[in-house]
């Protein structure tokens, strides 16, 4: 047993010895698996996939965490769409680790939306959205999470990133949430192009919409920036000037 865990695979017929390998991993307890998994990744990626994600894989947080450094090898054997949901199901308390790795490696993947719903109980979608924020697919990812009803995740993503896409995606679902996201984005980054993104979805006269996000602004910098950007929105500019007089 310990020889396997020590990664000593010379002379071992991994396909024939798979039951013994599975048993060794199952019985490993808290013993390190990194040496074994590194050896398997180098020698037989299919055997590694069987051990960590196959139908008889023992699973558990310890096993899955040890497997995550080898996902590049595992992805050569299993499609990401199949691999990560399977790892997620086996991961117990390491499920969020699986989601984080999957989102970092595949930010545009649509299967991350249902996986997020299973993994996150607060601000569903946030892990995926943050991972996708630097990817060209970000707007599409925001729309996918909006369609799935992941409102809090989108609002938090706007607050974390200062990006305007979450607000635009929310417009079709929940206008108040969209305005919260827009205000949060501006508070995070006063240069955030929220007007451009809201108008692109809402229509060419967004004044009556934009004026409603003012009460949610938390910072003077955000209000100043919005005032500068909204020069053709008369209700918004009039309200902002009144609000700014009372802001410190």
């Amino acid at each position: 047993m310990s020889a396997l865990l020590d990664g000593k695979l010379d002379g071992v017929d991994l396909r024939a010895e798979l039951p013994r390998l599975l048993a060794a991993v199952r019985d490993a307890g808290s013993a390190p698996l990194d040496v074994l998994f590194a050896a398997l990744a180098a020698k037989d990626p299919v055997a590694l996939a069987e051990v960590v994600a196959g139908s008889r894989a023992p699973g558990g947080a310890h096993v899955v965490r040890a497997a995550l450094p080898h996902v590049n090898v595992l992805e050569a054997t299993l499609s990401p769409r199949g691999l990560y949901p399977r790892l997620f199901d086996l991961a117990a308390e390491a499920a969020t680790d699986v989601l984080a790795v999957a989102a970092a490696r595949h930010p545009a993947a649509s299967w991350l939306v249902p996986l997020s719903k299973k993994a996150e109980f607060f601000a569903v979608g946030l892990t995926h959205l943050l991972a996708a924020a630097g990817h060209p697919s970000f707007a599409a990812v925001c729309r996918a999470h909006a369609e799935a009803g992941h409102i809090d995740g989108l609002v938090f993503a706007a607050a974390e990133t200062g990006r305007a896409e979450p607000a635009a995606a929310l417009l079709a679902l929940d206008i108040d949430a969209a305005l919260r996201a827009a205000g949060a984005a501006l508070d995070r980054d006063p240069t955030s192009p929220v007007l451009a993104h809201l108008a692109a979805v809402w229509g060419p006269e967004p004044d009556a919409l934009v004026v409603r996000l003012i009460p949610g602004l938390r910072s003077r910098a955000a209000a100043d920036a919005l005032l500068a950007a909204a020069r053709h929105l008369p209700r918004t500019t009039a309200t902002l000037r009144a609000v700014l007089r009372g802001m410190v």
Binding site: A168, A200, V201, G203, P204, E205
Partner: peptide, 17 residues
């Protein structure tokens, strides 16, 4: 009025007044 384009952002570049 001007009809918006198809897609998720139908009013990119639109203005009206």
């Amino acid at each position: 009025w001007l009809v918006g384009s198809a897609g998720r952002t139908p009013f990119v570049g639109h203005l009206r007044g």
